[in-house]
Design a protein around this nucleic acid. Structure first.
Length: 53
DNA sequence: GTAATTCC
DNA sequence: GGAATTAC
């Protein structure tokens, strides 16, 4: 199960579950895990929620 | 710039 | 098609 993460929505920090999670890493470098979130107002927010190995 | 992914 | 995301 996806944990909830703190995301900024409408100037407010709220805990949301990511709609989608994937790794974003250039070749030969470390990179990050990106989460895609949707705020109640409909705004879409991407945030790094972890580091890739 | 690069990486993947989604939204407008 | 371009923007956005992180950090190296």
């Amino acid at each position: 199960m996806e944990k909830e993460y703190e995301v900024e929505c409408d100037g407010q920090s709220m805990k949301l579950k990511p709609v989608k999670v994937w790794m974003l890493a250039p070749k030969g470098r470390r990179g990050v895990i990106i989460g895609l979130f949707k705020c109640p107002g409909g705004k879409v927010v991407r945030k790094a929620i972890g580091k890739a190995e």
